[in-house]
Design a protein around this nucleic acid. Structure first.
Lengths: 73, 73
DNA sequence: GCCGATTGTTGAAAATACTCCGTGGTGAAA
DNA sequence: TTTCACCACGGAGTATTTTCAACAATCGGC
């Protein structure tokens, strides 16, 4: 689920992969790969991505179903 | 947060590390290491662990604060 | 004291995540 | 058409996770 959520939250904030890469201090091409679900990221990068996006790490792993208490997009 | 949550949920169900290892198809010694936060696990093993424990992957990453909607122990 | 069950720990190999550099492709704007 | 921002994708190399076999330590019960 990470891939879709990642892209969803990133685009919702109008961020490019590169901007997010800077914020999270993660390689740009790796973020691209994560959004295409090429790898199973470690929880450490999930944390950094979540911080860069201003959401909880748990939010990035949640499955699509939009539960009432997801952070506002 | 994974380490503490993992141990918490596992013990709450009266499971041994080995039983959980079987359920999640993960090495026992690795689970031991994860509960001592030796490594930053991949979200794939977090998923398998969550399944073995019958909780959401997101629950294992949540920070201690017991939000009203955590699964019952 | 001895047993069985559970967990900590280690060392080495195998697998996979992650970085870095470069190339090409698309679409929008000048 | 050219330029620019953005993204997909490749390969090579490094770092880290994950597995496996084996042994030590603890605890409770017998």
């Amino acid at each position: 689920m990470l891939a879709l959520n990642l892209r969803k939250y990133r685009q919702a904030q109008g961020l490019s992969q590169e901007e997010l890469a800077d914020r999270a201090d993660i390689d740009r091409t790796y973020i691209s790969a994560l959004e295409r679900s090429v790898y199973a990221a470690s929880i450490e990068v999930v944390d950094r991505l979540a911080q860069g996006l201003g959401v909880e790490a748990a939010d990035l792993l949640r499955r699509p179903a939009t539960s009432a208490k997801e952070p506002q997009l």
